[in-house]
Every structure is written in structure tokens, then in C-alpha cells.
Design a protein around this nucleic acid. Sequence first.
RNA 1: GGUUUUGUGGCCGAGCGGCUAGGCAGCGGUCUGCAAAACCGUCUACAGCGGUUCGAAUCCGCUCGAAACCUCCA
Length: 488
Amino acid sequence: MSTITNELFIYNSLTGQKEKFEPIHENRVGMYVCGPTLYSEPHMGNMRTFINFDMIYRYLLKLGYQVKYVRNITDAGHITNSTGDDVDSIGKVARLEQVQSLEIVYKYNVNFQELQRIYNMLPPNIEPTATGHIQEQIEIIEQIIENGFAYVVNGSVYFDVRAYSEKFEYGILSGRKVDELAEETRTLNAQDEKRFFADFALWKKANPDDMQIWRSPWGNGNPGWHIECTAMSTKYLGSQFDIHGGGLDLKFPHHEDEIAQNCGSLGCNPAKYWMHANMLNVNGQKMSKSLGNYFLPKEIVEGTTAVFDKPYAPNVIRFSMMQAHYRSTLDFTSDSLNAAEKGFTRLSEAIDKLEKLPTVETSSQDVQAIVASFYKAMGDDFNAPILLANIFEAVKYINSISDGNATISKADLELLSTELTSFVLDVLGLSLSKASTDSKLAPVMDLVLDIRKTARENKDWTTSDKIRDGLAAAGIVVKDGKEGTSWS
RNA sequence: GGUUUUGUGGCCGAGCGGCUAGGCAGCGGUCUGCAAAACCGUCUACAGCGGUUCGAAUCCGCUCGAAACCUCCA
């Protein structure tokens, strides 16, 4: 009952069910996550996806798996919008940016690495780029053509969905049926070269305004926008690996087409478990520039977005995200973030208390059960909100011990301390600012608080409050507890 | 229109057939020189209408509302 379990169930988007996680190779996990496109700075919604998969990665590590985590960087593909009628100013701006595509890639790559640090994300084992794998993409396209699931038209290569559907099931992930797709009233572009409207490009003949062009057996051009993931995932993880993740918005067509490409070239679905992270809303709506609720991950930390009237620490953002399940939409509002801020403070203060807790012979609570509840929550499809709920039960217990209303044994304290900090730091990826262990500040604070203590003993409230107010102005909060005064 | 989801208390969010979610806010206490924190107690829920069931927020149907995707855009 209170046994710690490392059983893990994962909701598989492919089957629509929670399934027991059994890696293809014992103790090893191959995980591929669709990464950012470096033609703009990822917004907060993109970051939620990456942070959620960071949490998933961290829990897999916590369970002792040897994880190979691959997340691509999209720095190539179709960057043109050759509609021919970009007379509006937005089109002109886009055109300008295209001219500088390489610069933009460098710029946003640096930016993205910085964001990963700010939000305390573990780096993947490999971050391959699309432009570094053009040859692999070409080889897979050749294989698909050879297998009869793609055709060449005028320097471009298209995936043949109808031919594919005779042998495989197109739409297996998204639930779309080829026949139903066919009934759609969507009108095709007049210049369309595709045999069937559901066909998609594997290789696209170069346009005159393309800045990045590669040679191929079919002439100069660009790879299609799904093929890079197929090329890089199979190269680094093999034709079949354990987990493929990404944002929910990538489910169709991107992931659906990845499956088609993998089946069409290698004959199998690339991933055993497909995982999709849900979207982030702001003030009840999808983030959108026109709605005025759009902001960047750095802006919210720096307080430079007009959406919120104060900055929020990366820890608070992460904490807030961890309070929602990765498969649910999450709404960011000032109220929800303020609540998260206070909740996170409560959590970190309890963890600070851990090392000073008094121990006795017996514990008044079943610590083993508390710790088991942590694993159980995460084992149920990475249910971080339940984990946090259970952690807050532990927080209450810790505070009670600190107040003398509950007890804990030495062995239990060690267990609780180790596991709690591990789940908070290693799994949820939160970091605690331990001001009280600051080597330079600590002796000063000891001195100051000692003076204040003397003043309080003499009932010299003026001096005592002056010290407290002065420290508060410097950002240091003083709290008078039963066991003495603490600060943070 | 199609596919996939979704609608929980003042706010954010779990639960998904019977058992307290949790955080924040509110109210009443305890503690405290005051403050803060903490602790104890407590109040607001499951969109609506039917159905299945001994029993439904949880399953099914309908109505109303919301979201993502629907192909060259990661």
C-alpha cells in the first residue's frame, strides 16, 4: 500500500489510452521532441511544451532510465510565402527577414539556449539541426519513392497518400480518414502539382526568392517540413523508439505525416508512445498578437510585458505550469500567477525548514506513504498537479513538526528530506534560492538579528521594528517564530 | 462543415462510478509586543436537460458554450 512503485503509465495519443510504459530496450528510453523553429523567439506557449517535456525527461531520469533525449532545431524548410500577392506591409517585413534568415537562426539559437537556462531546463542529449541533415532527408525520400509511396513532379517530390493508404492507415494518429478528407470542400491551389489533395511535399523545388537552397537528385530545392523529424529521429534513435512528443498543434499534419514517412520508408511507426502537450492560454484566450495577450518568456520574467503588471520569477512560472496537467490547457492570469507565487514561497520555506527539524523516536505520520504518493502521482501519466497536492500535504506535516504539533523520526526525516527535495528540484525542475546559506550574508544577518534580539528582550520595539523594516526594504523578510527568528 | 478535445466552487486547477484533491483568496480561532509566517476550524462546485446504475462531477444521449487542427505553416 505504501510501497514505492516505479510503475509508469503514459497516455498514448496513438491509442487514446493510458498504457503501462515498457521501453523497447530494457532500462533505456529513446525520446524525440519537436523543438523550436528559429525564425522567431519562442513564445510562452512554446515554452510550456518544452518545459513539460523537460519534466517528463526528468522523471524518466529519476526512475533510473538511461534516456536519450533528442530535440531538433528547425533552421530550414519552407520559409517562403510565395503567394505572389504580399502587397501588405506584413508581407514586406517577412520578406526582409527572409533575406537575413541565417542571421536570424543564429540570433534565435542563442536566445533559445538562454531561455533554457532561465527556465532551468535540462539540455537534451542531442539538439540536431535540419540543415545539418539534408543528406539524410534526401535518402529517406529516395527510399519512400522506391517503395512506391511518393512521386516526382517538376522538381518536387510528393508523398502519395492514396498509394500509402492501400498498405497503411493514413490518419491513424489524428483520427482523420482519407475518404472524409476527400469530401472536404477545400479548393486546391490552381497551380497544384499534387495528384491528390491530401498528398504533401517531401521535397520542394526552389523558388527564386529562397535564400537557402540545397541540391538533390530532383534538382535544387528545400526539404518538406515534416521530413526533417523523420530523418533526425531515425538517425539518432533508430527506426523505432519509445516516446515521440510535441505540442498538440503538431498532431496533424506534422506528426501524422511523420508516421506516414516512417512507415513509407522503414515500414513502421517511429514511436511506441506518442505524447502531446496542451496549449497555454492567457486571460482565457489563446495567445495572439491581435488580442494583446501575447508575450515572450523573457518579458514575463523581466516584467516588460503589458499583459501583467509585475514580473514573475521563472520558478513561479514553472511552478504554475506544474500545477496543471501537461495534457490540459492552462490559463495564465495575474490571479493565477500571484497564487502560484505565494504557493511556491510556501513550498520553498517548508523545504528550508527540513534541515532544522527536531527528530524523535517515532513519526506521527506514515512518511513511507507520503513518499509513495509522490511516485504514484508521477507514475500516473506524469500527474504533476497531484504530485504537488501530495507535496503540500508534506508541507503541512513539516510545518506541524516545526510548530511542535507533530513528530518525525530521524530515519523518516532523512527519507522525506531526500525525496521531497529530489521531486521538487530534480523532477519538477524548480530551484530554491537559499539566501540563508549565503556565505557572506549569513554572518552579517546573525549579527543584526542578535542585536534585534537584545532589543526585543529589552522591549525596545522601536529599535527592533527599525531593523525589521530596514531589512524588509532591502528585500529580506524577518519572521519571529517559536524557535527564534528566521529570515529569507 | 469535419477530426480531436473540453465546460468543476471567488480565481487557477486535480479527480473521471461510491472514499478530503491541492494552491491562492474569504470567514472564525490559536500563537504573537506588533507584523509576517504557521497551525486548527469553516464557507462557496461539478454548464443545462434526459438516460443507465443500488449509487454519477465521473458512463450514454441531446442542447448550449469554449479550444486545437483541417496540408507546404514548426
